[in-house]
């Protein structure tokens, strides 16, 4: 019997596997709660900005800054981001960044 080490080749070897990483499904579930103000898939621009296709680093930095109350003049975002784990916010940033800007 030959044991084939499938798992070794199934992922991107350059990316460390984080046991606690927030999966894509969870990221999308959280991102759906954002759509009520940012439009479906974060792609609707008004006085509230569109999120789709924005750089991941910027989105992540902003979300975490909101959560830490480091965004002067912020309104609802600090109150909302405190409802999520940092990792969830990072995953949401990654998700929106992966979408096409419109």
């Amino acid at each position: 019997m030959v044991v084939v080490p499938v798992l070794l080749w199934s992922g991107d070897a350059s990316e460390p596997v984080d046991e606690n990483a927030v999966g894509a499904e969870r990221a999308e579930a959280v991102a759906r709660t954002c759509a009520a103000c940012h439009g479906t898939k974060g792609g609707f621009e008004t006085d509230i900005p569109s999120l789709a296709g924005k750089p991941e680093a910027v989105l992540e930095a902003q979300l975490l800054a909101f959560k830490r109350d480091e965004m002067p003049g912020a309104t609802v975002m600090p109150r909302l981001t405190r409802g999520y784990e940092d990792d969830e916010l990072r995953a949401v940033a990654r998700y929106f960044a992966s979408l096409e800007a419109n």
Partner: peptide, 30 residues
């Protein structure tokens, strides 16, 4: 979720209230 949420600050300056009114319109559209 514990620690999350809340209402707008009381006694906030007028521009804070103005922003929330603007965002209300934006929310409605979105």
């Amino acid at each position: 979720v514990p620690g999350s949420g809340g209402v707008s600050p009381s006694g906030a300056p007028a521009d804070f209230r103005r922003n929330e009114a603007r965002y209300a319109e934006a929310w409605y559209a979105a």
